[in-house]
Design a protein around this nucleic acid. Structure first.
Length: 156
DNA sequence: GCCAACGTTGGC
DNA sequence: GCCAACGTTGGC
């Protein structure tokens, strides 16, 4: 059974167009610095899982595309890179604290705006809609996944 | 720039 | 190990 996830990205960092234009339309999901999100990648994600690509911290937050998990979890090189904004000085020598997976584009979609998501009762249970939700990776239920795809299939 | 939520930190 | 304070996220 395929699992589904919602993954937040700031378009200023990596937008759906950046993913579209990336080599093999695949990017490494670097920069996750939350243990919960890391553990999802390490313990639960499987290659082929569905991903809702979500734009956050921007003028028009919402779901911008569909993607798939394209690798298992592997060490996020930015944790050791002092020149990276994701450098983590607390990671001790030889430690691997942070992981990332690769994500491959399936297709860009119309923007399913946060506003529209909130307005739809079928999506009311989505974790990303909870106030002040900070988790950058959240599981999406079968029902939520179907409801999102149904909304995306409608013209908006 | 405010606020809400909540994980993390640090003093004890 | 408790728990208050702090820091971060992210929408508005």
């Amino acid at each position: 059974m395929t699992q589904h996830w919602l993954m937040k990205s700031e378009p200023a960092e990596c937008s759906i167009d950046d993913l579209f234009n990336a080599a093999a339309q695949t990017v490494a999901w670097v920069g996750v610095r939350s243990y919960q999100a890391r553990n999802f990648m390490r313990d639960a994600m499987r290659i082929g899982d569905d991903v809702l690509f979500y734009h956050s911290s921007c003028a028009e937050p919402g779901i911008a595309g569909l993607a798939k998990v394209a690798s298992g979890a592997y060490p996020d090189a930015t944790q050791w890179n002092v020149d990276s904004p994701y450098y983590d000085a607390k990671v001790v020598r030889d430690e691997v604290r942070w992981l990332n997976v690769d994500v491959r584009l399936v297709r860009k979609t119309r923007l399913l705006a946060l506003q529209e998501m909130r307005a739809n009762p079928a999506l009311a249970t989505m974790q990303v809609l909870r106030p002040a939700n900070r988790l950058s990776i959240t599981p999406v239920s079968d029902e939520e996944w179907l409801a999102v795809n149904h909304l995306l299939a409608n013209k908006g």
